[in-house]
């Protein structure tokens, strides 16, 4: 659907590319005084996807929020993508979303129908996830923003953090990379319609199926690959787990069209922030091209799950994932801590 004012023209940066760099975030939070609560088992001090609060022996609450400026012009699709992205953090903790609130910022020039379509997209996606949007808050601002605050549940013993990978684990990734690069190149009208439709559909796809399959296996650690890119999130998993992560570029799934666009410099600024944040902990092998590195630093909007689990279980889990998600791939492994957090070969 066409809108009067192109949504992406109202935004200064798109999707998860708008995320403040991990390094900046760490500086902002440095020295911040927090209170402890034994029931808060994942909180401020962890660089994780969501916080987790234990309610009783059977139930823990998982809470997260995510929002960003339009990454696509179609408002219904933008609503779907923003919601899928926000819901993903619950899945990355192994949980199930149940309740959500809209977070909406309206910019001048937005038609009423456009706003309604955004909300309708969010509602539809939340409903698909088994969650209900029960309210929200709307303000006026310089650019449109949409997202959700999401509440979900998980069994306290089944919480999956990004800091529990173990040596010997294999790493699975459930969505191909390159959507940040391709949405950047799309601003120069260099991406074919069929490719855009492919990445839009991918960004609007919930990580629910991946989560539902993953929880049937002995997964040690999980995160979703979003604004900090594959390398930023791998770096956090390695640091949090006290391990090293080895990624095999030959196995990392990415949209092939992203390769040339990256080589031509259509790389979102967020990719360079990710590089600044993680590169001191990343050792790229001599055969890894700069373009492949750029793809691995590319911020992903509503990206896939990065799952760490023992080798034998990983094979079976991947086989089952592939039946529903053909692009899912085994992209690397976890070892005991070495000189670098992440090795890219």
């Amino acid at each position: 659907m066409e809108t009067e004012v192109k949504l992406t023209k109202l935004a200064s940066c798109a999707g998860c590319g708008a995320k403040v760099g991990a390094g900046t975030l760490a500086q902002l939070l440095e020295g911040f005084q927090t209170h402890q609560d034994p029931r808060l088992i994942v909180g401020y001090d962890k660089s994780d996807d969501a916080c987790v609060y234990v309610v009783d022996e059977q139930t823990a609450l998982v809470q997260t929020t995510d929002f960003f400026p339009p990454i696509v012009d179609d408002p219904f699709l933008f609503g779907q993508i923003a919601a899928a992205n926000a819901l993903s953090d619950i899945y990355a903790m192994g949980g199930e979303p149940k309740l959500a609130l809209n977070l909406l910022c309206l910019a001048e020039g937005m038609e009423r129908e456009t706003v309604q379509e955004i909300l309708r997209g969010g509602y539809a996606k939340a409903y698909e996830a088994g969650a209900i949007i029960a309210g929200g808050h709307t303000i006026q601002g310089a650019e449109p923003i949409y997202g959700l605050a999401v509440t979900g549940f998980v069994h306290p013993d089944k919480v999956l953090t990004n800091a529990a990978a173990q040596p010997g684990d294999r790493l699975l990734l459930t969505k191909p990379l390159g959507v940040g690069i391709l949405t950047t190149a799309a601003k120069a009208d260099l991406v074919e319609g069929a490719v855009l439709e492919r990445i839009y559909a991918q960004m609007a796809t919930l990580n629910k199926t991946a989560r539902d399959i993953m929880v049937r296996y002995p997964v040690h650690s999980c995160t979703d690959v979003t604004g900090f890119a594959l390398l930023g999130h791998s770096y956090e998993m390695a640091q949090g787990s006290g391990c090293s992560i080895h990624l095999d570029t030959a196995r990392i799934p990415y949209h092939p069209e992203a390769y040339e666009m990256a080589a031509m410099g259509f790389i979102p600024a967020g990719a360079y922030r990710n590089r600044t944040y993680a590169s001191a902990g990343v050792k790229a092998g001599p055969n890894v091209t700069q373009t492949m590195e750029d793809i691995c630093y590319d911020p992903q909007t509503s990206g896939g799950l990065l799952i760490a689990l023992p080798a034998e279980a990983a094979e079976a889990c991947l086989a089952e994932l592939r039946q529903a998600i053909p692009q899912a791939a085994m992209i690397g492994q976890v070892t005991k801590r070495q000189d670098y957090a992440v090795y890219l070969d």
Partner: peptide, 15 residues
């Protein structure tokens, strides 16, 4: 006036 632009324009020109 920003590093992303410097890097991206460099990549384009080299390409």
């Amino acid at each position: 006036d920003n590093t992303a632009a410097k890097e991206n324009v460099t990549r384009y020109a080299q390409h």
